[in-house]
């Protein structure tokens, strides 16, 4: 009974804020569109009984426009996550190697852009990259280019925005992993004749792979559904799931199709989310094994905080 009372709040929370909205969304996805507010017929009604349809879901599978948008989203998310990982690894390595007093300020610098508004940041990028913006102004002013370069509304601008927005998601788990590592193991490798680069390649890097995978997925999962950044910085042809969904919902007022898109994206991301959870559990179990000389690492298996 006590157990039940303890478990009640989180389950109530999950039910109200996760399960119920997903159920409503799934219901809309199964319904037919109709003029009116809201613009669909409920799939089941007292008067008419079952009046739902699988048409919306079939459309997603059969129409290359939607399937293509999913594929593009996954590619953009994958490239963004890979870029973030590549940039975050040296940053995390540096933070982990820094003196204890320096770690918090360095992490704060990584997080700083996170604390400024999301839209003003994108606005700043637009101001920098647009035809009459800072970058083009300087380039044409110095005579480097004859006219403005098409910087904004390009893949490059989109990835710039993605990396800028999601980099902290990659830096934090990597820093935690690298701080938790047993430095004695690296010393042992050096002692056995491994140069610093070989120590990194044969010990540090393989042992940090779970953290790197977690960093990749933490960027990949939200990036796959990202709407604002491709919309504001990306090229018009970058029709990602988020943009298509937005268009169906607000422009076409096709709620059932938009809902079907949202549910499909959720289903598509279950696999990477499960993978991330597995890695996370594995990471905490691994943290229990070797005692370490790293500042915040405890030998008793509890997971140390990043900042200690």
């Amino acid at each position: 009974m006590r157990r039940f009372l303890v478990l009640l709040p989180p389950f109530a929370w999950l039910l109200a804020l996760v399960a119920a909205p997903v159920a409503i969304l799934a219901g809309i996805a199964l319904s037919q569109g109709a003029p009116g507010v809201p613009p669909f017929l409920p799939p089941v009604s007292l008067a008419a009984g079952w009046q739902g349809t699988l048409e919306n879901i079939l459309t997603l599978v059969q129409d290359g426009y939607y399937a293509g948008s999913f594929l593009r989203s996954l590619v953009v998310a994958g490239v963004s996550a890979a870029l973030c990982l590549g940039l975050a690894y040296p940053v995390a390595l540096g933070i982990a190697a820094a003196r204890e007093g320096w770690r918090v300020p360095l992490l704060a610098m990584v997080l700083l852009p996170f604390w400024t508004g999301f839209l003003p940041r994108l606005g700043a990028w637009i101001g920098l990259l647009r035809d009459g913006g800072w970058v083009n102004g300087v380039l044409t002013g110095l005579g480097v280019t004859a006219g403005p370069l098409p910087l904004l509304y390009s893949d490059a601008a989109m990835y710039l925005g993605m990396v800028h927005a999601y980099l902290p998601f990659a830096v934090l788990p990597l820093t935690a992993t690298l701080l938790r590592r047993d430095l004695a193991v690296e010393e042992a490798a050096a002692d056995l004749g491994a140069s610093p680069w070989v120590v990194f390649r044969t010990v540090t890097l393989p042992l940090s792979l779970p953290g790197a995978a977690a960093a990749f997925l933490l960027v990949f999962i939200p990036a796959a559904g990202e709407f604002v950044i491709p919309e504001l910085l990306g090229p018009p042809e970058a029709l990602l799931v988020g943009r298509v969904l937005w268009a169906e919902f607000f422009q076409n007022r096709d709620w059932p199709l938009a809902a079907a898109l949202a549910v499909a994206l959720l289903v598509l991301l279950i696999a990477p989310i499960r993978l991330f959870q597995r890695l996370d559990e594995g990471g905490s179990r691994r943290g229990a094994s070797p005692p370490s000389r790293v500042g915040g690492t405890a030998a008793d298996g509890r997971r140390p905080g990043v900042l200690r």
Partner: peptide, 29 residues
């Protein structure tokens, strides 16, 4: 530097490579 010294050390925590098998641990040097 440590890797260029002909001495070898056995660590208190043993510091075995957790991702390598016994064979590859011993073969490392």
């Amino acid at each position: 530097p440590p890797h260029a010294r002909p001495v070898s050390m056995v660590f208190q925590s043993y510091a075995l490579f957790p991702h390598l098998t016994v064979f590859h641990n011993v073969a490392y040097g």
